[in-house]
Structure formats: structure tokens, C-alpha cells
Amino acid sequence: MRRYPILAVLLLLLWSQVAAAQVVVTEGEGTDRQSALRDAARNAVEQVVGTMVDARTLVKDAAVQLDTVYARSWGFVRDVQVLEERRYGDTVRVKVRMDVDTDSDAPLLDDLRMVMDLNDPRIAVIVNRADGSGRDASSEAALDQKLVELGFHHVVDPSLTANLQGASILGRLASGKTSLAAVGKSLGADYLVLGELALSGQTISLPDGQGGYSTTLLKTGDARLTGKIIRFDTGEILGTFTTTGRGVGNGLAVAQQAAAARAASAAAQAMEERFRHLSAQLSQTVELQVFTADPEAVRQLMTELRAMGMVQGVSLREQAAGKAILSVETPEQAPALLERLKATSKLGIFVDRVTGASAKLAISRR
């Protein structure tokens, strides 16, 4: 799995803090003036994104998502000035000067953060022993090491997950009944891998040449590792896995540790496949028509939407005469999105009409 360097992440974060827009002079062509301008906008956005993300090192699904970003390039540019326009047969070519919006709250940066997380998600790992004796440090370490070898750069140190050890918290999270968004942010993690390890073993016996068996000093260990991949912000279970391993050693503990390491290595391989397909459900745009005479309420609504899991971007398309239109990038349908919003929002929200991809609502600050 190829991944872009951590330096690219730092460049993205730095860029979002110091620049609200980048001025680009570029060219485009098409069958008419508008299509040529759209081509120029894509070229301009590609130039800017190229300073932040090396597309050659993106995993497949993240690269697909980046293509969807480029397809919406026209929505990321402003102050378009046509410097030259010429026609060559059936082709129109333009040279333009435009600003690419790179404000930290701009839709482009929201989309790129999603690509970034998709390409290299931040993962915390906890493995508990099935016999109730606590965490299994060796399998956690083996899982972490294998994930790093597979190219995941943001694997949380096991010592930092100690505050998640409470059985009631983990139980609710594992069943999808809660989220731990605040804890996930404090750990610097997007996902929790929550596993359970069952161990067994026995002494190796060999034929004694007299029709019987004699015991040896060697032991065999068997491990069965089951687990769930869980989103911190929503508690959603994204996938499950079950792997096994066997080990041999001159003591039971050594043999079981070797078995656990093999089961953990196989689990990491299974998780890689799952993480590579996290973008299979690409975002759609949900349109919210928001009625309120309070501009501050609209800003609060946008902030709350951006803080929700499964929301990749929020943009204000227009606002006038007590009405605002918001575009929300999310794989969720509008009814599910609004249900989760109403459960957490500090605003008063009255939904007038809702379809799969749109909704009309009135809001007020409480």
C-alpha cells in the first residue's frame, strides 16, 4: 500500500493556517467558453492540491476520492479573470487568473482532510484477553507493528489508550451505542480496533519407540483473535475479523505469545483490506434550506454539522432575507443526518420537509 509522506500532511495543515486563497494563472480549453473555464479551474485546483498532496502515493480509494474533488473544482475558485480567449476551430482556449479558496473552513480543505484520513487513518488498538485477565500487551504490540509495516503512520501508542480500559465504556462502544469523539481526538485517532484474544496450549509428546508417548519440554500455543473496527466519532462498527495462530516454545507462555503474534499479524492484514475500502460509499450532497433571521444561528449550525461524524464538508451557498442554503457533503441521507443533528445540537430545530437529499428547516438559538 503506497502512502504520501507525513510532510505532505504538515504542509496541508500549515497551508490551512496561513493562506485564505492562492492566486493561480492557468489555461484551459473546451468546446465553448464555459467548458474552457471549467477546465482551467480544474487545472488551478490541481496545481494547489499538488503542493499539499502527492497523488502518486495515494492508496486507490483515496485517489478515487481525490478525483471527485477535482470534478468539483469550479466550486473551489473565485474572482475569475479572463486574461486571454482564443478560438481554434471547434476549440476555445482561455488563459485566466483565479483564486483557489484554501481557507481552513473552505470546502476544498474539508475534502482534502477526508482524502488525508482515508489514505492514512489514525488507529488505536486494544486487545483484551477472553479470560478476563486484562489487556494482552504482546498481541497489541504485534498488531501495531504490523500496521506500521503495512504503511499506516498514525498508530496510537498502547500506553495512551489506558483511559479506554473501563469495561462499561468499551462495551457500549463495541455495541455501537455510544461514541467517544472527545477521547478519539485526545488520542489523535479516528478508529478503534477492539479485539478479544483467547489462548490455549498443551505439551508436545513424541513416540517413545515402545508403543507409547513421552512428554517433551516443548509446548504448543493456539490463539484466536476476534475484533471490531469502530469509528470513534459515531461508534459505528465498520467491520469485524477473526484470525488464528499457532506457536511453539520451550514454555507455555512463550508458545502462546508466538501464537498471538501470528494471529495479530493476520488480523492486521484483514484490517488493511477493510481500511482500503472505507471510501466505497462516496459522499453525496445534501441541501439544507434553513430559515432564520439570526445569522449567528446559521454559523452555529455549520459548526455543529462540521463536528459530526460522516460529514466531510459544509458550505454556505447563499444567505439572504432570512433564508440560507447549505450544501453538506456526507454519505448519509438527509433524514438520518437530521436525526443525529437534532440529538446533539444546541439549537432549536424544526424540520418542515425532508427527502433523501434535501430538507427545509427553521432554527433558533436557545
Rank of each mutant, 00 (worst) to 15 (best):
residue 294 D to V: 10
residue 186 S to R: 12
residue 234 T to F: 05
residue 27 E to V: 05
residue 154 H to L: 08
residue 161 T to R: 06
residue 281 Q to A: 13
residue 140 E to G: 07
residue 131 D to P: 12
residue 159 S to G: 09
residue 161 T to Y: 03
residue 292 T to I: 13
residue 69 V to W: 02
residue 261 A to V: 13
residue 28 G to E: 00
residue 158 P to V: 10
residue 300 Q to R: 15
residue 258 A to R: 15
residue 325 I to A: 01
residue 92 V to A: 04
residue 318 E to D: 04
residue 196 E to F: 01
residue 63 A to Q: 12
residue 301 L to M: 14
residue 253 A to F: 13
residue 233 D to A: 12
residue 346 K to N: 09
residue 302 M to P: 08
residue 320 A to Q: 09
residue 43 N to E: 02
residue 146 K to S: 14
residue 267 A to E: 06
residue 326 L to V: 05
residue 344 T to M: 09
residue 178 T to M: 10
residue 40 A to T: 01
residue 127 V to P: 05
residue 21 A to H: 05
residue 287 E to H: 11
residue 111 D to R: 15
residue 334 A to H: 01
residue 85 E to R: 06
residue 172 R to V: 03
residue 229 I to N: 03
residue 243 T to H: 00
residue 51 T to V: 08
residue 284 Q to W: 00
residue 21 A to C: 04
residue 259 A to P: 05
residue 293 A to V: 13
residue 252 L to P: 07
residue 101 D to W: 01
residue 182 A to P: 04
residue 67 D to R: 12
residue 213 Y to D: 01
residue 115 V to E: 06
residue 192 L to F: 07
residue 149 E to W: 05
residue 203 T to F: 01
residue 309 G to D: 07
residue 259 A to F: 06
residue 123 I to E: 05
residue 333 Q to M: 03
residue 36 A to I: 00
residue 89 G to S: 07
residue 313 G to T: 13
residue 275 F to D: 10
residue 114 M to R: 15
residue 239 G to V: 07
residue 3 R to C: 00
residue 289 Q to L: 14
residue 185 K to P: 04
residue 4 Y to E: 00
residue 318 E to F: 01
residue 323 K to N: 04
residue 177 K to P: 00
residue 281 Q to M: 09
residue 29 E to K: 09
residue 339 E to F: 05
residue 332 E to H: 01
residue 146 K to W: 10
residue 15 W to Y: 06
residue 291 F to H: 09
residue 83 L to Q: 12
residue 197 L to W: 02
residue 151 G to N: 04
residue 89 G to I: 08
residue 93 R to I: 01
residue 347 L to V: 10
residue 337 L to C: 04
residue 72 R to K: 10
residue 243 T to P: 00
residue 256 Q to W: 11
residue 179 S to Y: 07
residue 190 D to R: 10
residue 92 V to H: 02
residue 114 M to C: 12
residue 208 D to Q: 03
residue 264 A to Y: 11
residue 355 T to N: 11
residue 230 I to G: 04
residue 337 L to G: 02
residue 328 V to Q: 03
residue 5 P to S: 06
residue 190 D to S: 07
residue 312 Q to F: 11
residue 141 A to C: 09
residue 309 G to R: 06
residue 262 R to G: 00
residue 128 N to F: 15
residue 156 V to H: 04
residue 195 G to A: 11
residue 91 T to W: 07
residue 48 V to E: 00
residue 100 V to L: 00
residue 48 V to H: 00
residue 344 T to V: 13
residue 302 M to E: 15
residue 251 G to W: 11
residue 217 L to T: 13
residue 214 S to M: 03
residue 164 L to S: 03
residue 253 A to M: 13
residue 220 T to G: 02
residue 276 R to Y: 13
residue 307 A to V: 01
residue 137 A to H: 10
residue 189 A to V: 14
residue 255 A to C: 07
residue 30 G to M: 08
residue 127 V to R: 04
residue 79 D to I: 02
residue 47 Q to G: 01
residue 126 I to H: 02
residue 118 L to S: 13
